[in-house]
Design a protein around this nucleic acid. Structure first.
Lengths: 94, 94
DNA sequence: CTGGTATTTTGGCATCCACCGAATTCGGTA
DNA sequence: TACCGAATTCGGTGGATGCCAAAATACCAG
């Protein structure tokens, strides 16, 4: 259970912001990178961390690479974390 | 909103284990430290990170210091993360 | 105040991590 | 083939982080 990669991936604000953006819709690496003031290699590194944590999926289409949020993995990771730390789940917003 | 300290604090497996232990009951620094194969100063450093993240409360009683889990902060941090990432909360176990 | 126990602080080292510029790879196109 | 745009990998730097031994602090008992 390489769950540790997930926690480490979530520890960085830039990566959390990337995930939040991907929550809206899949985006290419360039699209994502343009939303930050960081150099491309830096962003590429963040993508790699997210890929290794299996939090995003990369799909090559021609010359561009589209990143897609892996909702299931993210959800399960957070649930596991909450469970391990004894945080009770919220009531479903009525 | 120093929420970032919380995520950083959760990124380390030792600290997550500490939180899991405190979930059962409050424990003194020595009690906690004895459950790990790490030197005391190392553990003390982890305690400090958890304190700064406000995830635990330290209370001095005589010569010992008792650490107590700060459930509320933890819960709110995880909820905020889930919300930011669009993970829907689970139903309360019926 | 002297000694002993509990815990943190200090100082230092090794590793990791975020960051960048430059070079490289991969596809598409002429 | 040569060239261009998209994205990653390479090489290096500065700063954070985890670790420890030794010293310092805080408290209690004599």
């Amino acid at each position: 259970m390489p769950t540790n990669r997930v926690y480490r991936a979530l520890a960085d604000p830039t990566r959390r912001r990337i995930l939040a953006l991907l929550r809206e819709r899949p985006m290419t690496a360039g699209e994502l990178a343009s939303q930050f003031e960081l150099a491309w290699p830096t962003m590429s590194g963040h993508f790699a961390v997210l890929r290794e944590a299996n939090l995003v999926q990369a799909e090559r289409t021609g010359s561009t690479i589209t990143y897609r949020l892996n909702q299931t993995v993210l959800q399960e990771a957070l649930m596991a974390l909450m469970d391990a730390l004894g945080v009770s789940p919220a009531e479903p917003s009525a």
